[in-house]
Nucleic acid binder design. Structure first.
Lengths: 258, 258
DNA sequence: AAGTGGTCTAGACCACAGT
DNA sequence: CTGTGGTCTAGACCACTTC
């Protein structure tokens, strides 16, 4: 019995040819064609794709176009070219998974929920040891501190704390309207490029935090910490977000196909 | 006062030119050059890069090479080309963060720890409602069930549960040696392409789970659930991993720069 | 030496956006 | 209509791998 060959046919009924007259780009057609052949097992993991020259000749297209097609598969992680040797089909990798944490508002929209935002408090504080460390400033330096609640369908979901270095040039008022770190970056033409360091932990909600989120204490939660740096690697914001563990989860798709 | 222009100079002292004789590819040189100019604010967010023609002429290189350079910036999320309009510099996005969960062994190695693996139990079970649901089989269908502990520096860190459809063709013994879902995929030539669905939650360790990990009960933990599908979208594995919340955290870098 | 991927060129035509 | 990015070609030379 040959159980390598699935009996049923696929929806895709691809012919082994390229339609140059099509509106669909040639490189895209070829990429799909190769992907299809790999899916069918015509070229298996560890084996080589036909050389670029050969593909170009076979389908009557230029080698550059072939390369563009292969580049598509490379970015998808399906194949890996090796200089002087050939382009090899990767074994499906199912071990890795990538979780995206986007901003709360779009995240909730994507989940079909109605997000809202409430600022609890905004004040100027002197940096304690912890904050001084995060913002790389001396202790006692003044910074603006925000506390807010993010809700979905009027149910509190995230408790959010932010600290920004206090800067007389920066108007506080507009930050009150949207104190997201993103807003701060976007509205300040000083920041051409930024980077952020993110840490995801699990935490147990303290009594106070649970009270604010209107949940029982000792509920587990995601804790997302974010430090944002400007183009000179100077911290320009620190944020800590607590996501209710009973309501929030993150999903991702992985593998060789996306 | 012009606080847009930082007074101090950068380490990079890039000349506004391309060295065609260099071993460094021209497209790479140009990509770095453009990135540098954006970083300096020479082209700010929302503004256009010079047209491809112009860049090609200015640096005496072909337009295809210019495009290759710009493609680098596109994949980094720094610019976005718009057909017929130009190539625009993106505002730094600091909201999104991407967390990678790789396999335990390489993850621990990367963290400089010494990983080890212990199989607690492997047995054949009949699927209960939950497992039947995950593996999309009728309840009562036999499946292989694995329980194991993953440790770093001999300290239990992850409690891992796996269920695979029972298949007489699949030798169990090799799975006992390395019962990772990845191993199962790699060793089975039937699977050309696979996909996985991953869910990350927070959970409270039950008494039993805590006992196995040798930690106090009610410790919060990451719970990673993974369902793997073959190329026909048939589930071929279900896994649940509990990561000690007091010892495990995930970090990522984000922003316009990686 | 032969095969293979990596880079690069100097054109070309197209589709779309803005005038 | 002009400017712009998107696609494609038919070559070329190089560096690396394998024989």
């Amino acid at each position: 019995m040959d159980y390598h060959k699935p009996e049923h046919s696929y929806q895709l009924n691809m012919s082994d040819s390229i339609d140059k007259a099509s509106i669909i780009p040639v490189y895209y057609q070829l990429a799909k064609l190769l992907e299809y052949k790999i899916r069918l097992g015509e070229v298996r993991a560890g084996e080589k794709l036909p050389p670029e020259n050969e593909l170009a000749e076979k389908y009557n297209i230029s080698r550059m176009t072939v390369r563009r097609a292969i580049a598509e598969l490379v970015t998808k992680g399906i194949v890996s070219p090796e200089k002087g040797r050939g382009t090899f089909v990767n074994a499906p990798n199912v071990q890795n998974s990538t979780f995206e944490l986007t901003d709360f508002i779009s995240d909730m929209h994507k989940r079909g929920l109605n997000p809202s935002f409430k600022l609890i408090e905004a004040k100027i504080l002197k940096a304690d040891q912890d904050i001084a460390n995060k913002l790389k400033v001396p202790t006692g330096t003044r910074h603006i501190f925000f506390r807010s609640i993010l809700s979905a369908n009027d149910e509190p979901l995230v408790y959010d704390l932010k600290s920004l270095p206090y800067n007389k040039q920066t108007p506080i008022l507009e930050n009150l309207y949207d104190p997201s770190l993103q807003n701060m970056i976007t509205n300040n033409a000083d920041f051409q490029m930024t980077k952020s360091l993110n840490t995801l932990k699990v935490a147990m909600l303290t009594h106070d935090e649970a009270l604010i989120l209107n949940v029982p204490a000792n509920l587990p939660a995601f804790q997302l910490e974010k430090v944002i740096y400007d183009q000179h690697d100077k911290p320009i914001g620190y944020g800590k977000s607590l996501y209710r563990g009973d309501r929030y989860q993150i999903t991702s798709r992985g593998g060789t196909w996306f």
